[in-house]
Design a protein around this nucleic acid. Structure first.
Lengths: 227, 227
DNA sequence: TGTACATCAGTGAACGCGCGTTCACTGATGTAC
DNA sequence: TGTACATCAGTGAACGCGCGTTCACTGATGTAC
């Protein structure tokens, strides 16, 4: 029953954005609005449930795409599969993607429990790098490989940033060198930046062949990480 | 007078997001809500005016930052200056940035005239590449330079994408080779992706040393374009 | 097999609020003669 | 210098709507004896 409410609410997100209306949801279900309070204590709680579900659905989809690459040493294939899964999911459920990664909903503050769900996807992505590092398949920062680009003498990490990377590494991918995490964050920005710009309409009148464009961008990010 | 209304409305955007309320704006100005209709025909028209102003303000700031580099051949400095101007502006006016580049406002459709304003900033950015190309200061796609990364044999541009690039080039930076535009688009995604993710809270608990992080990302994008 | 009772999903009315937009109006200011 | 008129910024009431949340309630279903 709460599942049905959430399904209807998700449908409303598509047209109304995050201005989710309890009454409208109830109306769509042929119920009276107060009936929803048997299942959710407030509008914000319903919104939180939707956000949690979305984070988890996305993480599931990405983990499945990664795990579908049975030869775990094919790091590049794993990255491409995971990234495609993210974009496909986002294109299929734009409103839910916007809920997670779009402009913050005014007046809504995400409760603590969303943090863990939000980081699941990052753990999946970081594992690709961590596996590669453990297998010795990623280039060391010094080597003359594409990924080495960013670790030239002029690109020393400041102490504060190094501390961030160390902390995030221990949260998400214990043992991963900070330079690899940095490369991963760069790819992350490129990936989510791409999907967000595309979804939020910034590609209109600029790039229409979006699948091809995305594929090329992905190859770049894979090079950047040395996959 | 319309300026004062817009100023108050901008203040409201900060707290309410795009759920801008005419009545609230009027209240803040000590007026009755219907008085606003002497200046704006509807709520959407006010929103459009705010969006236009924001696009123009951002483009102005970026153009000024670029032009402050008096030696026009210092392409890398010009790119860094422009990019910093974008981020600084976004951090100073997060709500207006979100209005332009965040999730679309449900039910609001931008009228035609916003398109020209929206592309001004791209013209400024593309001019950096165009100047560099005209001066012969940018590496040819074949050269063994960082920017050449993305034009290896495995990264052929599909016809549809090539057509997009040609069209966009003629809109924004006539004469610019499509490979350079592609590099520019990649940098654009990295830049706006970074600013959006940062502003929309995705860096929380991940990267706190954001200025340093941004600087490093920018160096990367500059390398990528061969500046 | 039948009665008494508890559970609990959903109802309907109400509270108090906010919204965009319209419309006839007031009343001050400026202009023309 | 003084009167008549036009302009026009802002008013106030109203329309019709939607919202989240509360509360006492109905009435069907299941359980206990």
């Amino acid at each position: 029953m709460t599942d049905e409410i959430k399904a209807v609410a998700r449908r409303h997100l598509e047209t109304e954005g995050a201005n989710l209306s309890l009454r409208a949801v109830a109306r769509d279900m042929g119920m009276v609005s107060s009936a929803l309070y048997r299942y959710f204590a407030s509008r914000d709680e319903l919104l939180t449930a939707l956000i949690l579900d979305a984070y988890n659905a996305l993480a599931d989809v990405v983990a499945a795409a990664d795990e579908a690459v049975t030869d775990r040493s094919r790091l590049r294939a794993r990255w491409l599969a995971a990234a495609h899964a993210i974009r496909d999911w986002a294109l299929a459920r734009p409103a839910e993607y916007a809920l997670l990664y779009g402009s913050p909903v005014p007046g809504y503050v995400a409760p603590e429990d969303t943090v863990a769900a939000a980081s699941r996807i990052y753990i999946v992505l970081a594992r690709i790098l961590a596996d590669g590092f453990a297998a010795g398949a990623l280039p060391a920062p010094e080597q003359d490989r594409p990924a080495a680009l960013m670790f030239g003498p002029s690109l020393r990490l400041a102490d504060a940033l190094r501390a961030d990377l160390t902390r995030t590494t221990s949260d998400i991918a214990p043992g991963l060198p900070e330079q690899l995490l940095f490369a991963g964050l760069t790819a992350w920005i490129q990936l989510f930046g791409h999907v967000s710009l595309e979804l939020f309409g910034q590609f209109n009148n600029v790039v229409e062949a979006r699948d091809e464009f995305f594929d090329l961008q992905l190859e770049l990010t894979a090079d950047l990480m040395g996959l």
